[in-house]
Design a protein around this nucleic acid. Sequence first.
DNA 1: TAAATTCACTAAAACGTTTAAGGTAACTGG
DNA 2: CCAGTTACCTTAAACGTTTTAGTGAATTTA
Lengths: 337, 337
Amino acid sequence: MSVTIRDIARKLNLSITAVSRALDGYPDISAATREKVRQAALEMGYVPNRAARQLRRQKTDTIGYILPVSSPQHTESFHTVFMEGMSEEAAIHRYDLLISTAPPSSPEEQSIYQSWIQSHKVDGMIINRIQLHDWRVHYLAGQLFPFCALEDSGDDLDYPRVEVANQAGMTALVQHIHQQGYQRPAFIGGPVNLKIQQDRLQGYLDGLQITGLPYDPLLVETSDLTGISGYLACQRLLSSNFPPDAILCINDDVAFGVMRAIHETGLRVGRDIAVTGFDGLQESGFTTPSLTTVEQPVHEIGRELIRILLAEIQNQSAIERLRRITPSLQIRESTQK
Amino acid sequence: MSVTIRDIARKLNLSITAVSRALDGYPDISAATREKVRQAALEMGYVPNRAARQLRRQKTDTIGYILPVSSPQHTESFHTVFMEGMSEEAAIHRYDLLISTAPPSSPEEQSIYQSWIQSHKVDGMIINRIQLHDWRVHYLAGQLFPFCALEDSGDDLDYPRVEVANQAGMTALVQHIHQQGYQRPAFIGGPVNLKIQQDRLQGYLDGLQITGLPYDPLLVETSDLTGISGYLACQRLLSSNFPPDAILCINDDVAFGVMRAIHETGLRVGRDIAVTGFDGLQESGFTTPSLTTVEQPVHEIGRELIRILLAEIQNQSAIERLRRITPSLQIRESTQK
DNA sequence: TAAATTCACTAAAACGTTTAAGGTAACTGG
DNA sequence: CCAGTTACCTTAAACGTTTTAGTGAATTTA
């Protein structure tokens, strides 16, 4: 078995209390003893047992995240970078990230939330891919359980979160498209109750208004955020009698599928028809032609979520509970004639 | 606070032992009592406290994985799907996945391993991106700590793992290239001590031998597995006096960068110069032109790793400890003249 | 009918920490 | 020189389970 606090105590002829407090740096242990204990702990390779500590402290030093997964194979590459950011920041604060998978709003998802929270598996949760009136927000807020969300559920509740200026980003894309001389931009969105869908669609509509471009409901298509669904949505758009000359996609993955579909018809992306993405994934710079997109600092967003959540857990009311992030327009070849 | 086993016991006038054993289905509790207890537990919303259970059982029902991260922003999309597969299979067995991040072979990585294992945070580890004579394999095997690895470290140790036929896959690519009439295939590999680098490079060399194509050391380049490094490596290859007419890449991400670099020189991928990837990421089907690659069932690999690891943890020696997986050649446009 | 066995349950210890409460010796101030 | 403080340490309880070793009653066996 591993070394426990008791072993150290026995070796140094101290009580386990003394050892525990020495290691935690309490002032009621003499400097000399503290040093001796630290030394011994190091030598003996002592590592505190997490379960015991958790049980006693009623804290887990772990934060939870549920990967939203729809169909197993098709996923948004967004997640990797996002999780890296989170786990990196968590590691800095000596917290761990606990992961599970569940389809959004499924019974599985609910039962994971219940079990994690009730069984004290995590000290806080990160919520991503928020929906309008998201049940998770209500549940967690109702339980007074610490959490931090990416985006707002539009419920007029005040909870800690990070918000990206999705709407403004999409509007900027429309304006850019307009400047480049495209006349008839379409929009391929995602599931209707997703917050980013609401925002980005609204940004598209705002953009049309500002630039004076016409709004045509036939130019608004839906995807499930994957490349394949983007591919199919694009085919539908292109087969219309009066097809668009630009396609704004809700994210980069959809845009990849769209570019593919356009390529297959023999049209040229950029010259014949503009395409834009959203997210700024690494791959977007390497497509042919390269993809104009709105780049979000996904890694940084992940880190910020953790930062805010940890402050929340530790009740540091000092820190701002709402962080707004402005994404940046990346103009590339897919929108050049 | 939440409902404990003690609350149920009090309510039903039973000992906590009886309640515990009833819930676990031991036969020394009468069926009637067992039913009453189950009912009460359900009504009261009882969820066992994980920390307490862990402390007593010396098990955590959690398995650990460290995301290998080199430079924060540039990551292989492989990981998302891989993690999804793992967490999905883990969830089925009611295990959780604990995640942290660390650069491969860094002191951070070592200290996470130490701390997780010594502090009993996890029951087993998954190892990915294995290197030759990987220290993790030696460490874990030395500690008799359960783990399961993707690929072999070439140490002649017998440990549970999943192996993908990387070498054969790469050889098949060379043969395909040769059939298509390309004469001078280059190879862009990765960090030299990475196992997949060894295997895929060897597969490339084998392919040359089998097809009778010439081997030229100048045609072997190195990347760090990212798109950008593939882009740069490709530029080096193309600027040589006697450039290749095909570029085999160690993975899809590198291939994306390569296609980009080729495009910028005005050459046409496929017609002028073939490109292949490895992994079969979703995006590889949507590039222009679409990318010939070797598709690994990444999701399934993740699941299989967990299956084997859990069997290991539970000492089910029945299950096979070595699973070989054959990837499949996906022939697409990037290798058509 | 007494001894042995089975059934259904309980008491108490244990897992490895943290912490509240307390104790003792040395030190301080008057 | 004695009461009060301080410095440093210890005892014991607690966190919520699981498990070992019983216990008493009912039932079976010889």
